[in-house]
Amino acid sequence: MIVWVCTGCGRGAFPRRLLCPDCGGGEWTEAESEGVVEEVTVLRRGPGRTYEPAPSIGSVRLDLGPLVVARLEAGTAPGDRIRLRLDGGAPTMLGGDA
């Protein structure tokens, strides 16, 4: 998936920031990044509803730095290396091996 990279110091960010938290710069480029799954949960119920099928949601540490919340494929486990894309704004796991 696309993340934002500060042209001043190379720091990655997602979601997009206005100023770089590290160097204060305001110029960004886009770069593709894979990541590693850190935690996985399954959303079974919400207020007044159940989710069927229940989506898997995880924290994914991207190689370029940011920790994002992503839609995962069922069966994904912590430690798995995955590729993602943005689907309607949602970081979403791509099938197949990274």
Binding site: P15, E39, T41, Y51, S59, V69, G88, G89, A90
Partner: peptide, 25 residues
């Protein structure tokens, strides 16, 4: 806007999923 644009489309069902991940950590 970050929640609206990047979490709700997952879907995330409100803050519960975020704190489920935090609780696992």
């Amino acid at each position: 806007s970050a929640m609206r644009d990047h979490l709700t489309p997952i879907p995330h069902g409100g803050p519960n999923a975020l704190f489920a991940l935090l609780t696992q950590r």
